[in-house]
């Protein structure tokens, strides 16, 4: 096993995440894309913690923190979705203005 394989898998996940962010209009899918990117970063961290000149647990700890933080983020994101759903219940989604430059 070599570290390059793992970081390349992680790079592929980042690419998929960016693709999803650019293409998908649905907020839930956007959330998925962000989670995929965070996971790619975590995979990178763990790979580097295994293949590292210095024995250090910092990589695994960072990954643990990042997972906890992502959970906190998702909770707020889902609350925003529920709020949006309530606001747009009677309204057509098309009224949701597009991102203006």
């Amino acid at each position: 096993m070599n570290i390059t394989e793992f970081v390349i898998i992680s790079a592929i996940l980042v690419g998929i995440g960016i693709y999803g962010l650019v293409v998908k209009r649905n907020f839930i899918k956007t959330l998925f894309s962000i989670e995929i990117i965070v996971n790619a970063a975590n995979l990178n961290l763990i790979a580097f913690s295994k293949f590292n000149p210095i024995t250090s647990s910092a990589g695994q700890i960072t990954a643990l923190f990042s997972i906890a933080i992502a959970a906190a983020e998702v909770a707020v994101g889902l609350a925003l979705i529920i709020l949006a759903y309530r606001l747009y219940n009677d309204v057509d989604v098309k009224e949701f203005r597009r991102l203006r430059g």
């Binding site: 980042v14 962010l21 962000i34 580097f48 990589g59 960072t62 933080i69 707020v76």
Partner: peptide, 23 residues
Amino acid sequence: FIFGALSSGLLIYGISLVYGISG
């Protein structure tokens, strides 16, 4: 939220790289 969450994702990716080369 979308841009904020993306920015923290990128930051974690950056941290992983720095950690990788410096330990």
